[in-house]
Amino acid sequence: MVDFANIGAVCRREFSSYFATPLAVIFLCVFLVLNGFFTFELGRFYEIGQADLSSFFVWHPWLYLFIVPAISMRLWAEERKTGTIELLFTFPVSLFEAMAGKFLAAWAFLGIALLLTLPIVFTAYYLGDPDGGVIVASYCGSFLLAGSCLSIGIAVSAATNNQVIAFVISTSICLLLTLLGYDPIVQALHKVFPPVFMEQLTNLSFPFHFEAIRRGVLDVRDVFYFLSIIFLGLFSGAIILDKVKAQ
């Protein structure tokens, strides 16, 4: 039985704590600068001459690979270092509720970061006539992708006190899930594995589902995929936390 009021309380506390230091603002700036760099320099937003945002969204899986673990790595390590984990779990809160509360706070923060990229949408509209539906779907997909990386990161941060290790492991797992759907890798793997197996494998990857959404179709199966990853991350994180919380 999950108590949603507890999730809310943990989430609000966590969220407001981000803004107690300038770190949150610095993070948002870094996120926007990197986004701009990828879109305009590597994606050649202007030069392509198309008024759509694919050169903006295409980079998001790669961006989240580093940006999200940077947020998630401290989520549990910090509580353990200061000992507040003992305070938190001697309140009438379950492991999953605390996990979900922290996750939602960080996810909301990533959502804000995403919203701050809206000026690029206005630019696209100024330059031409992009497809609004595709843009909305892409934003949803990107947000779900961020949540998936986050839930993996938060489970990993439950497992280790060391923030550097947490960062490296989370990035590795997300990288694996990204590469499984990255064309050059997929082609190479096709030479080794039978097609049936490869299909299942790519089905598990981030890009397979993100690209589908990015084309403008918010398919239930893709959304379900991301939500499953999120629940799996939170659930396994809660189990890990139960084992290690007192160490």
Partner: peptide, 26 residues
């Protein structure tokens, strides 16, 4: 419960922290 060394959320203000405890304590 007061744990050893009284761990607390250092970045919070006292009033906000007590409000959080009220919420979590229903």
């Amino acid at each position: 419960y007061l744990p050893e060394n009284a761990p607390l959320y250092g970045e919070m203000e006292v009033a906000a922290f007590l409000k959080f405890v009220c919420e979590i304590r229903k």
